[in-house]
Design a protein around this nucleic acid. Structure first.
Lengths: 113, 113
DNA sequence: CCGTTAGTACGTGAGGTGTCAAACTACGGA
DNA sequence: TCCGTAGTTTGACACCTCACGTACTAACGG
């Protein structure tokens, strides 16, 4: 019954620990903006490798970690993979309208180029 | 007639050179968020030293430069000082609603702490 | 011309960031 | 039990960032 290994968990910041500067910093990298846009477009969560970003596996891990530690995404293990989702509601509560504005801004910029 | 020295000018990015990532990076520092909020609250432009930020003069120059190069603020010389203003309209055109959302987000966070 | 005020340039140092490859762990299935 | 897949960890590297002090320039007021 007692598991030999602890269930794999990942530390997430509580809503009141999420800092605006941190969120903005997390989104100041094109790779991470890409990830966030993909998550926003998806109905449910996505695994790490589901989003196409032209970097190595370890770099990808790094980017997801930055997003999680900033409070932008939530990550849970599911079998051998990890499922990522946007912390939409919490961010909306903290910074109303911000995420939407960011997503449309990113979308616009994509279209322009 | 021909001036011995060129009139002091500062390079600003054109609207189509302003990148979302750059703007977000510029705003991922508390000191710069502070500056931007002050500029937003002011009716007209502010000199560099008009915004109270607890850093040295040279560091302050650095922060204003980052903001200008990201396309967030415009700077013009006026006598011995430099006047800073938000590039509101241009940012609004590029990323509608973003600046407003950022400002209210910063304001909210301020209030919380 | 001199002094004051406002900001700049430069060099430096501590610390962070993005990137990778290589070796590793965890899970699920044959 | 062994294999493959998914992600992690570590260490290395080049580069960037923020901070500072010091020395500088530009403009204004006598």
């Amino acid at each position: 019954m007692t598991p030999t290994t602890a269930p794999r968990r990942l530390p997430h910041p509580a809503p009141d620990q999420i800092r605006l500067e941190g969120v903005l910093h997390a989104l100041s990298d094109p790779a991470r903006v890409r990830i966030v846009c993909a998550l926003a477009a998806a109905e449910s969560g996505l695994t790490c490798s589901a989003v196409e970003v032209p970097v190595s596996k370890s770099t990808l891990t790094h980017h997801y970690r930055v997003l999680r530690e900033a409070g932008v995404v939530a990550q849970v293990y599911r079998g051998t993979s990890k499922v990522n989702s946007l912390r939409r509601d919490e961010l909306e509560e903290l910074f109303p309208g911000l995420l939407e504005a960011l997503l449309t801004a990113a979308d616009r910029q994509d279209r322009r180029s």
